[in-house]
């Protein structure tokens, strides 16, 4: 009897091996994005913009047309693409250093213009690629290689809440913060990503999904410990939930 495939790689993921560390959530999120692209049937018209950071290679992991933006500039690059090709689906994939530090102006203005692009925002409270430096989203008290005494308000200021900032902007049409720490959360995250892409396809405005993610390597924790740390600490600082939803129920 021939074996029946019951689980396979999404078509929109390439055969290239991920470069991510064990226990890192990038891989889960990549798969979810690819599944959504497959299910919406948009692989042939999707353009992706990878960031600078651990996911700099993301443009090779997805089997869609792709490029890498300069650090933080992905929303501007995506804006140029979308304005040139309004019938294509354009998404950026960005980490917290890229999006919330060096790229703050670009994300705020793309969101505020209601740019019809989708952003997948990975918040792991640390710089991964460069080796564990402080991010704008680093929690108070958290030790990193550039906040070796722990982040302190007087010295480094507060962690920035990107979704809470963006929700005030009128151009934002879909905005949700999710996690992928459990199978139930993974399913919910996929729905959020799907709604974000639907928002763009329907031409409603800017959409973003913030994903709370682990960085076991730079947090100095095992993958399981990292998930527990995320659940206990990051979710308190960054509560999950839908901030803006102009797309409504998906059929």
């Amino acid at each position: 009897m021939a074996a029946k495939a019951i689980f396979k790689k999404p078509q929109s993921l390439s055969d290239k091996e991920f470069t991510y560390c064990p226990g890192c959530h990038h891989g889960i999120v990549h798969r979810l994005v690819a599944e959504v692209i497959d299910e919406l049937g948009i692989q042939g018209k999707t353009l992706m913009v990878a960031p600078v950071g651990c996911s700099v290679f993301a443009y090779t992991f997805f089997d869609v047309d792709g490029t890498v933006a300069a650090h933080g500039r992905a929303p501007a690059v995506a804006t140029g693409m979308k304005r040139a090709m309004p019938d294509k689906v354009v998404f950026t994939y960005q980490g917290d250093g890229d999006l919330a530090a060096i790229g703050t102006a670009e994300i705020i203005h793309a969101a505020n213009r209601g740019e019809k692009i989708t952003t997948i925002f990975i918040n792991n409270a640390i710089y991964g690629m460069t080796g564990g430096q402080m991010a704008p989203t680093t929690l108070l008290g958290m030790k990193t290689t550039t906040s070796p005494y722990g982040r302190e308000v007087d010295r480094e200021g507060y962690p920035i809440h990107v979704s809470e900032v963006l929700k005030e902007l009128s151009g934002v049409a879909y905005l949700e913060r999710v996690a992928v720490s459990s199978p139930a959360e993974v399913r919910k995250a996929k729905q959020a990503i799907k709604k974000a892409f639907m928002t763009q396809i329907k031409g409603l405005g800017f959409s973003l999904v913030e994903v709370l993610s682990t960085c076991p390597t730079n947090w100095g924790l095992s993958p399981i410990e990292a998930i527990n740390w995320l659940n206990e600490n990051m979710k308190k600082e960054y509560p999950l939930g839908v901030f803006v939803d102009k797309v409504g129920e998906l059929k």
Binding site: A69, A70, R73, A76, V77, T79
Partner: peptide
């Protein structure tokens, strides 16, 4: 026509549009 938020954004919009 799009007035960008800065020249930094403008040049990256050029990058995006030119890549199409």
């Amino acid at each position: 026509f799009l007035q960008s938020e800065s020249e930094v954004a403008a040049v990256n919009m050029i990058y995006g549009a030119a890549s199409t």
